[in-house]
Design a protein around this nucleic acid. Structure first.
Length: 867
RNA sequence: GCCCGAGUGGCGAAAUGGUAGACGCAGGGGAUUCAAAAUCCCCCGCCGCAAGGCGUGCCGGUUCGAGUCCGGCCUCGGGCACCA
């Protein structure tokens, strides 16, 4: 019996494709182009099954589009800068560069046997000096275009290791290595002016029709456009040189319910007051002993400090409000100061209750019945009357106002906000403003393994960009990681350079760029990866935009938003054409592959993680570390990540069953957009199926006679399979395409048609399987006498005449419940269908003598009898 | 805490508002075999002898008809600006 042997056929066909140059992207003005891109990987060391899933999806699209006649660009590269390389160097010696390039080599070696139709000649890593040289050029162009500036910003500071920590490295408010409580510290850093593009980035979301709605919504919320009022509260007595506090509010309609003003600990007034108030200074210091993440700020206990100062309410003569410093006010948003209206904001209410501040209703619900005077009579308890829940109705809901300054009685929140802003502007006590949540993008990182910021600091000339002919500013190789902090800071021969402008002694910028910068333009670089400029205009004009971008939802906001900003910046600086302002035409966010995490703890109580192949499941169900027998704690599934070691290595599957089986397996079963919990069962079944298909091709004999009458149904089934599989691929429903191919296999296997007819069906099967299992498909194509390489054949077309069915089966419902079925000619008249439906015995039984009130016939779909 | 998703048999899942469970896994039965492997065929949501009833996380609503649309919850996952 013929056997499928992947270890023989897979290398054979990979070599054949290579020889024929099938996957080299060719700029061909006579053909439509198609650029398919999967988010490039971080070279962590091993590919995991999530990568296989991601790149197989892209490969299915790439191979399909090639068969459809497109000039396809399908490149691969490495997002190669970042912290893990430095962590590895600190943990086990060695150099980040060696670690990174070693990992890249390993991962490339793992990926090539997968048979992805990638143009490897365009490969690059972001840590290649040739790449980051162009990134530095972009930086200088953007600096000159006014898109970059410097300002102070807070970072997580580890006071023991004397180093800046990433949010990820702050665990329960402590540094992950030192265990010391982190502090917030201000550093002067470089920023991209992404917030200048807030309005545009928001509005352009509407044009991204082939993006998932959820991603557009997440981005819109992130940019966070809000209309509100800016107004000032005058201090009753000037304090530390301040006479007023400017606040921004999105709910100016609740101003009559204001009962306190709160400012951020970083607000200039709070800082000034610290001088003469040791308790306040202590409070603020405590606030600063906290990480910088919004999550930490928002989930921390809300705390405040009464400054003893007061402000005057702008509209109520004689009302004075206390001024508090509160840990939940962000200096980065609005003016860093708010007024609190506890009756209509839960956070303010919690704060007011905690510190005994007044609660004043400004509106109540409109009573449901017309014969009562107030909501109270219907049992509503307002916050002012002691309720623990703030009254926060939808802004579209009508409420009854109490003594509103603009004279409102009943109005929705939206109407009230508009009226309030209009009133404030007309009477000169406030100004309507549009505020965005989006902040400028801070890119300075106090680390070695990143793209050096090409700037020199000169005492006379200030921050001066490096001369372009001196690019790249290369990372020095002779550095050590035996002490914390940035090795560039303690590298005098690299750091001390003459000023590019005046030539006097100066110092290089030792911060490097955020790695998000690297990934914000790599897609453009792939169009001309060896160009001496960031892009080549002709290549960019031809290949851009990315027609289909594929990646994880976890990148829905930051990476995609930064890339959208960068595309605009590159257009402004002349590196991309106008049409590239939105660089990704279509986006598909695939689900993550998740797996349980196996954790033990070391003698200091710190977590130790174990990979799935390091543990055994005992008969009792207990899961233990194979080497030590220690019982592990099983943490529920999360996305696979190197740091949690819950990754599954596809190498074992590939070694046992081959790449096609791994590819087939990750495309089947789960819909691509959904997360999938990895289980090893099923790979065996996938291999069995591929073997079966292989055998059917190997054993096909075209001279074998068959029942002539069976040829036609097989041709119909073939046409149906072409239509359904194609639709599945077009709609990213790869799992349904796979299901259709299973069904088609069964149909062929059971068909009594002639050998020749079966051969034709099997050739189509090979064509339809080619995107998913390319090696098997080539082997079949060859065995079945197909011309040339299957990878270069056009996609099969379904004969429309064969797709039409003569009769259809209609379900018959009684009161929405299915009771029977009728089979009718395709174009049966409505009254014929009605009569047939009424004649069904099961229908008669369900009617039970009742008379039909209404008969609904949905042509081609269903009959519903309403009694 | 805030923003965004997801939830359907024992399991992975399918289903333009129109037959819930296609296809696959696991399981059960059978054929072939001296036996086994491999292969092939059949059954397979739950309750019920059956007729039938109940079923898409929970509660309510819209509709002739809801897994699908609307409102309110629950659970799980993603993001929260220095993980990538």
């Amino acid at each position: 019996m013929s056997r499928l042997t992947p270890s023989e056929i897979e290398p054979k066909w990979q070599a054949a494709w290579e020889r024929a140059g099938c996957f080299t992207a060719r700029h061909d003005p006579d053909r439509p182009k198609y650029y398919v891109l999967e988010m490039f990987p971080y070279p962590s060391g091993r590919i995991h099954i999530g990568h296989v899933r991601n790149y197989t999806m892209g490969d299915v699209i790439a191979r399909y589009k090639r068969a459809r006649g497109y000039a396809v660009l399908h490149p691969m590269g490495w997002d190669a800068f970042g912290m893990p390389a430095e962590n590895a160097a600190m943990a086990s010696g060695g150099h980040p560069k060696d670690w990174t390039y070693g990992n890249i080599a390993d991962m490339r070696d793992q990926m090539k046997p997968m048979g992805f139709s990638i143009d490897w000649s365009r490969e690059f890593a972001t840590c290649d000096p040739e790449y980051y040289a162009q990134q530095q050029r972009l930086f200088i162009d953007m600096l000159e275009a006014g898109l970059i500036y410097r300002k102070a910003a807070v970072v997580n500071w580890d006071p023991v290791d004397m180093t800046v920590l990433a949010n990820e490295q702050v665990i329960d408010g402590k540094g992950w290595r030192s265990g010391a409580p982190v502090e917030r510290r201000e550093l002067v850093q470089w920023f991209f002016r992404i917030s200048d593009f807030s309005e545009e980035l928001l509005e352009a979301l509407d044009t991204l029709e082939k993006w998932p709605d959820k991603v557009r919504l997440m981005q819109a919320n992130w940019i966070g456009r809000s209309r509100g009022l800016r107004l000032a509260f005058d201090l009753t007595a000037p304090a530390a040189g301040h006479e007023r506090i400017e606040v921004f509010t999105t709910r100016p309609d609740t101003l009559m319910g204001a009962s306190f003003v709160a400012v951020s600990p970083d607000h200039p007034l709070a800082r000034a007051l610290e001088e003469g108030d040791a308790d306040l200074a202590a409070f603020s210091a405590e606030c600063r002993r906290m990480g910088t993440s919004e999550e930490e700020l928002e989930t921390a206990e809300k705390k405040g400090y009464d400054t003893g100062r007061t402000v005057r309410h702008p509209l109520i003569e004689g009302r004075e409000l206390p001024v508090w410093v509160a840990n939940f006010i962000l200096m980065d948003y609005g003016t860093g100061a708010i007024f609190g209206c506890p009756a209509h904001d839960q956070r303010d209410l919690d704060f007011a209750r905690k510190y005994g501040l007044p609660v004043i209703d400004t509106f109540r619900p409109v009573p449901f019945s017309s014969d009562v005077e107030s909501a109270e009579q219907e049992g509503f308890v307002s916050p002012e009357a002691g309720a623990d829940a703030a009254f926060v109705p939808q802004k579209t809901e009508k409420v009854r106002w109490i003594d509103h300054f603009a004279g409102l009685t009943e109005a929705t929140g939206e109407e009230a906000i508009d009226a309030s802003i209009a009133h404030a502007e007309a009477n000169g006590w406030g100004e309507g403003v549009v505020q965005f949540r989006l902040r400028d993008w801070g890119i300075s990182r106090q680390r070695y393994w990143g793209c050096p910021i090409p700037v020199v600091h000169c005492e006379a000339c200030g921050a001066v960009p490096e001369n372009r002919e001196n690019l790249p500013v290369r990372l020095p190789d002779d550095v050590s990681f035996d002490q914390p902090g940035n090795p560039l800071d303690r590298h005098p021969t690299w750091r001390d350079v003459p000023c590019p402008e005046c030539g006097r002694p100066a110092k290089r910028e030792t911060d490097t760029m955020d790695t998000f910068v690297d990934s914000s333009w790599y897609f453009a670089r792939f169009t001309a990866p060896r160009a001496e400029t960031p892009t080549d205009p002709e290549e960019a004009a031809y290949w851009m935009n990315v027609d289909q971008y594929i990646g994880g939802v976890e990148h829905a906001i930051l990476h995609l938003l930064y890339s959208r900003f960068f595309a605009r910046a590159m257009h402004i600086t002349g590196h991309l054409p106008e049409k590239c302002r939105e660089p990704f035409e279509a986006l598909f966010t695939q689900g993550m592959v998740t797996h349980a995490i196996y954790q033990t703890t070391d003698d200091r109580g710190r977590p130790v993680y174990h990979t799935p192949d390091e543990v055994d499941v005992r008969e009792t169900g207990e899961i233990v570390v194979r080497a030590t027998g220690e019982t592990v704690e099983v943490i529920p599934s999360q996305k696979m990540s190197k740091s949690k070691r819950n990754t599954v290595d596809p190498a074992a599957i590939v070694a046992q069953y081959g790449a096609d089986t791994a590819r087939w397996f990750v495309m089947s079963d789960s819909p691509p957009e959904r997360d999938v919990e990895w289980t090893a069962a099923g790979a065996e079944a996938a291999f069995r199926h591929l073997s079966r298909v292989y055998r059917m091709a190997a054993e096909n004999d075209p001279s074998e006679p068959g029942a002539e009458a069976e040829d036609e149904p097989l041709r119909r089934a073939t046409a149906r399979a072409i239509a359904d599989v194609t639709e599945g691929i077009e709609q990213f429903g790869f799992n349904t395409s796979v299901a259709r191919l299973y069904a088609f296999t069964n149909t062929i296997a059971r068909s009594a048609a002639s050998g020749a007819a079966r051969r034709e069906a099997l050739k189509v099967m090979a064509q339809l399987m080619q995107p998913m299992t390319p090696h098997l498909a080539e082997e079949m194509w060859e065995m079945l006498g197909g011309e040339g390489l299957l990878a270069e054949q056009p996609w099969p077309e379904a004969d429309p005449a064969l797709l039409v069915e003569d009769t259809i089966t209609l379900p018959v419902q009684v009161n929405g419940k299915k009771r029977g079925e009728i089979t009718v000619p395709k174009d049966a008249a409505k009254d014929v269908i009605e009569a047939l439906a009424m004649d069904e015995p099961a229908v008669q039984r369900a009617l039970d003598g009742g008379r039909p009130k209404k008969l609904i016939v949905v042509p081609g779909r269903i009959v519903n009898i309403v009694v």
